[in-house]
Design a protein around this nucleic acid. Sequence first.
DNA 1: CGATAGCTTGAGAGTACTCAAAGTGGGTGG
DNA 2: CCACCCACTTTGAGTACTCTCAAGCTATCG
Lengths: 224, 224
Amino acid sequence: MYVTIPCDIAPFPSTAPLACSAPKAAEARLKPGAYLYFEGDEVEWLYQVTSGVLRLTRLLADGRRQVIAFGYPGDIVGFPAAGLHHTDCEALTDVRLQPFRRSHLENGEGDPELHRALLQAALREISAMQDHFMMLGRKSATEKLASFLSVLSDRVGEDLGAYRQINLPMSRSDIADFLGLTTETVSRTFTQLRKSQIIAIHNIHTIIIQRPTALRGLAEGSDD
Amino acid sequence: MYVTIPCDIAPFPSTAPLACSAPKAAEARLKPGAYLYFEGDEVEWLYQVTSGVLRLTRLLADGRRQVIAFGYPGDIVGFPAAGLHHTDCEALTDVRLQPFRRSHLENGEGDPELHRALLQAALREISAMQDHFMMLGRKSATEKLASFLSVLSDRVGEDLGAYRQINLPMSRSDIADFLGLTTETVSRTFTQLRKSQIIAIHNIHTIIIQRPTALRGLAEGSDD
DNA sequence: CGATAGCTTGAGAGTACTCAAAGTGGGTGG
DNA sequence: CCACCCACTTTGAGTACTCTCAAGCTATCG
C-alpha cells in the first residue's frame, strides 16, 4: 500500500482472490506482532493479504528505519530479489493470508493464470512505488499525511453518516517512518488537521474524516 | 539506477545482454534530448540500455518533478503497469538500446529464457526502489549526494591514477529532482564536498573522487 | 562577441527536527 | 476492581537544515 494519489487506471489492487486453478495452499494466519519473514530470509512463498494489515520495514545500520509499505487486503507481499526477502514483515493486526509458491511467480509451470496474476502484481507494485517516490521526495508534512489519510479513506474507510471513518492499526512512529517524518511532526500534523476541522480523532487508532474534499485538496498541494 | 548503497548480493544489474535465443529486434538509438516514451503511452517495448544514459521522470500537477531513475547500461526500462508507461523517458546522451517486446515479459511464449530474465529484472527493480525509499525518506542532503556519487563511482567510474572519475551527463536540477532536494542545495553540497577535498570538480559534468572512503562514509551517515 | 541557460553563492525565512516534559490509555498485578 | 506502570502520544521551546528569492558567475552556442 502506497499512498500518493495515483493517476492510474486501476489504482487499487483488487481484493478479489487471485485466479488460481491449482490446488491452493492452506490459508495462513498471524497474530499482531508476529513476523511473517525477515530481511535476508530465503523466499519460498508470496502472500496475498486476505484480511488485516501488515507492515514492511527496512533498517539502516545506524537504526534509522523506513516503513516500505503497509500490506492491506488485496496486496501481495514477499516479492523476492535474488531469491531473498528484502524487508522485515510484521503483522499489525490479526492477519489472514493466501500463500503462493514463489515458483508460481518465477516459472509459469503449473498455473499460467496465477503466474500472470503475480507478474501483473509485481508490475503494479513498481508503478505504485514510483508514485511514492514523488511523495517522499517532493511533498510537505501536511501533504504527506493528507495523502496517507485520503488514500486509506478511499481504500479501507467506512461510511459513518456523512463522514468517513478509518482505522489506523499502526503507531504514529510507523506512519512517520512511512512518510519520512518524525513522530512529533506526525502528531503535530494530526493536531493541525483536527483544529482545521478536516478530521476528528475519535481515538488514537480511529480517525473520522469530516471534510474529505479539503483533505484531498491538501494532499494535492492546494495550500489552504 | 538507484543510489542508496544496497546490501544486495547482486547490487548491480549485469551489463551483459539478456540471454535471448529469439531473433533480436534491431538496436535502437537516441540522440540527447530525444524521448523514448511518455507517461501514458501504450507499452509495446521494453529496453535494455546498451550505452548512454536515460532519465525517467514523473510530473505532479503543479509542476513539481521527481526523477524516478537514471537508466545506465545494463538497466532495463519501460516496465508497464496496466499496459501503460508511467514515466517520461528522455536520453541525456547518445543512447543505444536493445528492445524487447512487452509480450516477452508478459507471456513467456517465444523465449522462456528471455521471459525469465525480464521478470528477474522487474524483481530487482522492486528491491532497488525499496533502497531508494530509505534515501529519500531518511537521509540528509550530504548523505544523499555522497550516496549518489559513491554508487556512480562504483558502477560507471573510471580509474584516474589513484583517484576515480565520473561523468555526470545530467544537470544539477536532474540530480536535485532525483534526490528530493533543490538545485541550490545540490550545488552547495557539491561545493562543500569539494572544500573538504573529498571530490574535485573538473568541470560541471566531470567529478573526480579524491577520497572514496570518506565519500562512502558520508553516504552511510558517519557525520564527519 | 553577446545572449542565454545553467550553475554558484548569499541572505533570510520557514519547515521539520531535536530534546524535554507532560499527558493519555491499556495492561498487569495486587 | 482499582491503582500503578509503562509505552505511546502530544505539546512546547529552541535549533538546524533546507528552501526561497535574488544576484552574480560561467560556459556554451549562435
